[in-house]
Design a protein around this nucleic acid. Structure first.
Lengths: 153, 153
DNA sequence: TTGTTAATGAAATTCATTTTCAATAAGGAG
DNA sequence: CTCCTTATTGAAAATGAATTTCATTAACAA
C-alpha cells in the first residue's frame, strides 16, 4: 500500500522537512487544534485542546511548536492588551482578515468586510515604505481598539 | 506672585484633576520623560530616566502612572514581539504616525509619510465597522512587520 | 491647619514564557 | 529492518514583566 500517510493534510510533513525539522505527534496535535477552530487561542488553551488529541503532550512543546510555526510564517501571533499572546493559522479557511480588539474583555473579532480597499492601499504603502526605509516588509497588522457590544452597556 | 505654577506645561495638572486624580512629583517625572523623547520606551527604561528627575520614584509608581495615562488616553501602549510593552505620548510633537516593527531586533520606526490616505480610509472603515459590529472604536493601529536595514544583511 | 483619601515605595506575589537537562524518537544511511 | 545522529520532548526550575499588598505619605478641598 505504498509509504502510507507520508504527508498529513495540508502538506505539513513536507513543510517541516523542507526546513530540516521533523514532524511529530505533538506538532500534529497543535496544528490540528489550530486548524479546527476560528477562535484566537492562547498557548494554554491550545495545550488543553491538544491534550485531548494527544494526552502525552506537554505545555513546553506547545510553546515550542508555536514559536517554530511562527518563525515559519505559518501562524500569526496576536498581542491583545492582556499579556498572553494568542495565535491563529496564517492560511486558514477564514481567509485574509483584520481585527477588532475589545480593550475591556480582550475579545478579538475578525472582520473581512471592507478590507479590499484596505489591502490595496496597504500593498501600495508597503512598496513605498519598503523603499524609503530600506525595510523588508513581511506582514502587516491592522487593528481597531474599542469596546465590544457586550462591554459597552 | 499669585498661586505659582498651578498648571504644569501642557495642562497636565488640570487633566488629572478633571478626572478626580492628583498631580504628583512621580507622575510629573514620568510625563517629562515621555515628553522629552521620540523613542518608544519600556516601563523600566522610563523608570531609569524618571529617577534622574526624581530619585525617590519607584518602579511601581511608573507602572501605575503608565496605566493611568493609558486609561486617560494620553499615551499609547505598544506590544512588539517581545513581551515588554512600550509607550509613547499620544499627543506628542511627532504627530499622528504609524509603525514599522523589526521582528529581529524589535526596533520600532515611526513613519508619517503616506498616511493621509491611510487615515482617510481608516476613518471611513471605522464608521462602517462601528455600525456593523456595534463596536465603539477608540483607536487604531497599523503596523508593518519585517526586517530593518541593520538586521537584513 | 486639618481631614479625607489618592498615591506611594518596598516587598511579596502572580503568571506567561523560557531554559535546563536527561530521556526519547524521527527518519536517513546502510 | 536496524543502527545512528540529533532534533524533539516532558518535567521542573528559572526568568522576568507586571501586579498586589499594606502601612505610610502627601494632595488638596474645606
Amino acid at each position: 500500500m505504498g509509504r502510507g500517510k507520508c504527508f498529513g493534510q495540508g502538506g505539513w510533513h513536507g513543510k517541516f522537512h523542507g526546513r530540516g525539522y521533523r514532524m511529530t505527534a505533538g506538532r500534529e496535535a497543535v496544528i490540528n487544534v489550530l486548524s479546527s477552530t476560528k477562535e484566537h487561542l492562547s498557548a494554554d488553551e491550545i495545550f488543553i485542546r491538544a491534550r485531548k488529541l494527544n494526552p502525552d503532550i506537554g505545555l513546553t512543546t506547545v510553546y515550542r511548536t508555536l514559536e517554530r510555526l511562527s518563525i515559519m510564517g505559518e501562524i500569526h501571533r496576536l498581542d491583545p492588551g492582556d499579556k498572553r499572546a494568542r495565535f491563529e493559522l496564517a492560511e486558514s479557511e477564514k481567509g485574509h482578515h483584520h481585527h477588532l480588539v475589545c480593550t475591556k474583555c480582550n475579545r478579538i473579532i475578525d472582520y473581512d468586510d471592507f478590507i479590499d480597499d484596505e489591502v490595496k492601499l496597504l500593498s501600495e504603502t508597503e512598496k513605498k515604505l519598503s523603499k524609503k526605509y530600506d525595510f523588508k516588509i513581511n506582514n502587516h497588522l491592522i487593528q481597531f481598539y474599542g469596546e465590544c457590544k457586550e462591554c459597552a452597556e
